[in-house]
Design a protein around this nucleic acid. Structure first.
Lengths: 255, 255
DNA sequence: GGGTTTATGGTCAAATTGACAATTACTAAC
DNA sequence: GTTAGTAATTGTCAATTTGACCATAAACCC
């Protein structure tokens, strides 16, 4: 907090959102088609500039409302990081504060109503192609998804992808979709029911579908799992080496 | 990325640093005394405005160099979050991107050379008093420290507080200082030596001090611990409830 | 009823942890 | 040089947790 702003052109600050949900067995994200240059017609994460009297979280919630028609109250919103490469936006100096939002697979009130087409897209498709999104949004999405994946390990955030009342199988399918793995139903059940405060049984049962009806739970107050649920039991990446820089964009030994 | 910047006065973007080290058995942070209003004479985290052609990481490294005289190459720098409350800076709309830097207890080339007094201060003292730092820097520091504490659990970041070659006891003392706990030396030794790639033995031994000389290690390439070292074996916070909002400033159910 | 499907409970060996005792390898004092 | 003192390491053991996988339960369909 010293010195003076040395900007030639004043910078602007935007928020961009990785709105994630689990649909059709997979992790999907809401992308919009850009209606103005630059990157006209390309896909991008929804977002917009922060307004004058607005906090960052407020801006993120407002954008979420504008894009999905959903009130962010009740949804999980979390800041992931800020991106400030001077050349990341051809229009000038634009800093982007990246948020991730997790939501259940809801019908969206706004769907199609907005000028820009908004649609759910499988995250895997987007991550596979670095050119799939405008600006540096591929990086924003990569980091947001990695944040989400990591937090499932040691928090009850998976429930943020589920409706208020859900079965353990639904929660497991969230984990499987987000991690892209397969989990043993029995062991998963034992694990999540064993952590006190993580899930709260409602006493009710589902009647849907084939098979034995499942008990319905709701999200407990314990947000932190201890010990964590582990990805990669001993599959890939038993000891990952940050070769590409981490979710929180750690930078090591200068580069 | 839509709409136009709705700012009346152009915003500016600053980086502020929580430069952490372990000194005198405890976690300490570098604070400066402000030489200009606002908050003249108060303590604050070092930082400054991002310059025109500068990336955020670059700005953070530059500030680190200016404050400590140390090249950030070789040190760990990591973005923690961005703070954008419209009223956080009385001068106007200033967004602050918060970084944490971890460093060993080095003599600082610049110490005292700068106009502003820079000094190491125990983190515990600052965290105990919400008014101890200018602006919202108490929040920045709180979040940075929580980030550091969390990352010790599942990464080898503790080594960033140590010199290039260090003993297991030194590493353990880092954990104890950062977490404010006491760890069993034997179990800690077994744990960190048991994770392949975490520590690399150099074959050398220390001769300092009383007691059996310790083997010297250096940081291994495995940045992620699996399974993690656990804080709070079953002490405080077995299941923490995010009543104050998390390290990464998650915000839930709207507030 | 018999077959299918999914939920949930149980078993068992392997891995990990926490507590703590034992041993090793130095330094300092006598 | 022998004896303490100190800290690093190694070892032991019971308790917990995990992963693999079998078994049972409770619905559905025909």
């Amino acid at each position: 907090m010293a010195g003076t702003p040395g900007e030639v052109a004043p910078p602007s600050v935007a928020v961009d959102l990785s709105i994630l949900t689990v649909r059709e067995q997979g992790l999907q994200v809401l992308v919009v088609e850009r209606g103005t240059p630059p990157y006209l017609g390309a896909c991008a994460l929804p977002g917009g500039f922060v307004e004058a009297a607005e906090d960052l979280d407020q801006a993120a919630r407002r954008e979420l409302l504008e894009e999905t028609g959903l009130d962010a109250a009740g949804l999980h919103i979390e800041q992931v990081g800020t991106y400030g490469d001077p050349r990341r936006d051809p229009r000038g100096r634009v800093f982007s504060v990246s948020y991730m939002a997790l939501m259940p697979d809801l019908p969206m009130p706004t769907a199609g109503g907005d000028a820009r087409a908004a649609r759910w897209t499988p995250v895997a498709d987007l991550l596979a192609d670095p050119e799939s999104l405008a600006f540096d949004h591929h990086m924003l999405l990569t980091d947001a998804v990695e944040r989400a994946r990591g937090k499932l390990e040691y928090t009850n955030l998976g429930a943020a992808f589920c409706p208020p009342y859900f079965t353990i199988a639904e929660l497991r399918q969230v984990y499987e979709a987000v991690w892209g793995t397969v989990l043993d139903p029995a062991n998963f059940h034992r694990k999540v029911t064993g952590v006190t405060g993580f899930l709260i049984p409602t006493g009710e049962k589902t009647q849907r579908g084939s098979g034995r009806p499942a008990a319905l739970y709701r999200r407990g107050r314990a947000t932190i799992l201890h010990p964590a649920i582990l990805r990669n039991p001993h599959g890939t990446t038993p000891l990952a080496c940050n070769d590409h820089d981490s979710p929180e964009r750690a930078s090591d030994t200068g580069n």
